[in-house]
Amino acid sequence: MESLADAVREITQTIFVTVFDREAYDGAPPGDAELARAVASWVHISGAWDGSVLVQLPRPLALQLAGTMFASDPAAVTPEELRDAMGEIANMIGGNLKAVLPAPSRLSLPSHAMEGLGGEVVHVNGASERVDLACEGAFVVVTVSRPREGASNP
C-alpha cells in the first residue's frame, strides 16, 4: 500500500504539472529559519481521519505560482491573490489526499500565514509526515500532521 508520504508527493507533483506546468521533484529540506519565513497555507481534515495538511513555500516561488494562476506578473500579485493561490494549493492537496484516507471526512476551508509561521504552531502537532520537494530550485514542503491523542482539529 502506498504510504501517506508517497501519496502526498504524487498529488503535489500532479498539481504542479497540471496547474503550473512546472516540475516538483525531491529536494533538500530547507533550514529552520527559511522554513519559519515561508509563506504557508493549510487545511484540516476531520472525521474518520483527523489531521492537517500544511504547504510551505518561499515567497518568491509562491508569487511565481500565484502569477501563473492569475496570468499576471508575479511582481503584480496582490496579497489577496497570494492568499487565494496558496489556499487553493493546500485545498487541492488536502482534497486529493482525503481520497486515500479513511472516510467519511470533511475538508476545511484553507487558512494562511503570508509572513511565515515563525514559531507558531498552527495545528496540533502529533505524528507527522513531511515531504520535501523542490521547484525551480526553491523548496516546497508539505507536512501532514495528526492531532495528539485526545486532541481535535480547531
Binding site: 496547474v19 500565484a66 494562476m69 492569475f70 491573490e81 487565494d84 493561490a85 487553493e88 476551508l109
Partner: peptide, 9 residues
Amino acid sequence: DDSKAMRMI
C-alpha cells in the same frame, strides 16, 4: 468558486 484564481483557471 471562492477562489478567484480557480475561477480564472
